[in-house]
Amino acid sequence: MIRDITIGQYYPSDSVLHRLDPRVKLSGTFLYIVCLFLVKNWWGYLAAAVCLAAVIKLSKVPFGYIVKGLKAVIILLLFTVMFNLFLTSGTPVFEWKFIRVTKEGIDLAAAMAVRLILLILGSSLMTFTTTPNQLTDGLESLLRPLNKLHVPVHEVAMMMSIALRFIPILLEETDKIMKAQQARGADFETGGLIQRAKAMVPLLVPLFISAFRRAGDLAMAMEARCYHGGKGRTKMKPLHYKKRDGVAWLVLAMFLAVVVVTRKL
């Protein structure tokens, strides 16, 4: 079911991770992703997986809930695996007609899959533990230097946070419209690619109209509540670095060191 998709959602709880400064979480996630690409061998993945497991434990978000986030990207995952499995040259392990699987291919496919899974789990953990507003505040604060280059940082951040708020609402709406059109005999499941794409019209048109209507309503509601951009705005939850944030930075530094060390193994 569409509404089962949990990626990008906030999971309310009261953990150390939830209380961390969003700037730390944002930069930490970025660092973590960079590390995943620095990893050279299985020791590195192991280190990353152990760290991630520990952080997940700290976050008090149920593991099953996080894993469900993977559902949304399963196609991407399969595609990556297939691509690496069949198209890597090297010592053949298995051959049938034009299909050839190599030892290097298996290694690469497994590594890519693990990397992708770790990446998605890690980054969705950030959204699970950070409310979109905090995320926006963090991003806004981190990207503030770009303001000098006339990048509308506040507006971009606000846009992101609103998008995140409306994802579950629009998903539910998609589900509803889909059912309504099915009740009118629409068929989303069978037929060739073109036919299926055509079948999406009765779903997408109402969905877009609804999204635009909501956007109009929301703009009016925001204006009515005196929203006029980032200028002169105060914060309900201003960002202040605390001791735990310093600790988090230290942990991240250690993690980076471990990953670099594993490259030598």
């Binding site: 906030y10 309310p12 409310t131 979109p132 507003n133 946070s161 609103i162 995140l164 708020r165 609402i169 209507r213 909501r214 309503d217 929301l218 009016m220 509601a221 925001m222 009515a224 509540r225 005196c226 929203y227 006029h228 002169g232 705005r233 105060t234 914060k235 309900m236 939850k237 201003p238």
Partner: peptide, 28 residues
Amino acid sequence: FQNPDNQIIATVVEEDVGFGPENLGVPT
């Protein structure tokens, strides 16, 4: 407004209630 979904901006109740005062520049 009429539609409750289309006027709530934040994903946590208290943050949404704080949105107006934030826009007015009220101290934290």
